[in-house]
């Protein structure tokens, strides 16, 4: 039963990944103005366009190009950037473009996750333990406010207070890759803080709601009537049953940190992967767009898969079949 569930989820994950690749391929194919056009720009003649297209393999049927691309992806060959802001980036392997950006993104995600997950889980649990208390109302109200406002507002506000008025931190987080120690920390502080605030609010609310939902089940009432203390009810009886949904929301937030942070990256000029993709879209660098999109979707699918596994493993029905 457990194996079957794991296998089923794996199969679904792979299938979704394939579907995603098709969608991405079709999506990027309909972008108007292909690379050849952009490279040649004003000087394009029909002949030179055709020549360049055949050189780049753009004249072959779509499905062949799809399978070639998929095969390259699967073997880790992300291809070669076909356009760029200047001659220097044309012809650069995509992996070289992506690597530093991915490092930056993952670094930020890791820092945010390390701070946000324990923080939001404990505050969410505290709120659920004392529903209606002053602490709970403060948490509920604050998180409601924070998930309701756009993240650029949170970012702007932080810049205003911490960078402009108090002059504690730099307003941008541009890093060249050579920063170390305190300088790096300072550069990352504002975007990290923004993302911690945004992600924690979501996780906190979900933790509170899920735990409260579990707390309304008859077996919790039974535990109350058995004289089990509140702390134990939450930590032993409720939390085990709330693992599934909570892990799921954490996974969604992590996926968002990898892919959805383009606004934060823009506000702070942080060289992350999302910003790279936006730039790639503007320069019609299709292989780069495709590669970034695949990374984002794969991250999402992988994280959701891990979350699914966690909730399957936390379910005794699957762990201990009859």
């Amino acid at each position: 039963m457990l194996m079957a569930a794991v296998l089923r989820r794996t199969a679904v994950g792979i299938l979704t990944m394939l579907l995603v690749s098709i969608l991405i391929f079709i999506g990027t194919s309909v972008l108007p103005g292909d690379v050849a056009n952009i490279i040649l720009g004003q000087m394009a003649t029909p002949e030179s366009l055709a020549e360049l297209r055949s050189k780049l393999g753009l004249d072959r049927p779509a499905y062949i190009r799809y399978f070639m691309w998929l095969g390259d992806m699967a073997t880790g060959d992300l291809g070669i950037s076909k356009a760029g802001s200047g001659a220097a980036t044309i012809g650069t392997p995509i992996s070289e473009l992506i690597a530093p950006r991915l490092t930056n993104t993952l670094r930020m995600t890791a820092i945010v996750a390390i701070i946000a997950i324990p923080l939001s889980l404990s505050l969410g649990l505290l709120a659920a333990m004392y529903p209606g208390s002053r602490l709970d109302r403060a948490i509920t109200f604050t998180t409601l406010g924070l998930i309701s406002v756009p993240e650029f507002l949170v970012a702007t506000f932080l810049v205003l207070v911490l960078a402009v008025h108090m002059d504690l931190l730099p307003a941008t987080a541009y890093i060249s890759g050579r920063e170390t120690g305190l300088k790096l920390l300072k550069a990352l502080a504002l975007p990290t803080l923004t993302l911690v605030i945004v992600a924690s609010s979501q996780i906190m609310r979900m933790t509170r709601a899920t735990v409260l939902n579990v707390l309304s089940s008859p077996y919790i009432e039974m535990a109350i009537l058995k004289g089990v203390p509140r702390k134990r009810i939450i930590l032993r009886h409720a939390l085990f049953n709330a693992v599934g949904p909570i892990v799921n929301v954490i996974a969604l937030n992590l996926a968002y940190l990898v892919s959805g942070v383009v606004i934060v990256e823009t506000v702070f000029s942080y060289p992350g992967l999302a910003k790279l993709m936006v730039d790639a879209v503007q320069t019609r660098d299709l292989p780069l767009v495709q590669a970034c999109a695949m990374i984002f979707c794969a991250t999402y699918i992988l994280l959701i898969f891990i979350a699914d596994m966690a909730s399957i493993l936390s379910n005794p029905r699957l762990r201990h079949p009859k």
Binding site: M222, K226, N315
Partner: peptide, 16 residues
Amino acid sequence: VAYLAQSAAASFNPAL
């Protein structure tokens, strides 16, 4: 004082 509920299936925590 101990309590026995109507539905044992619902009153046992499935995770313990």
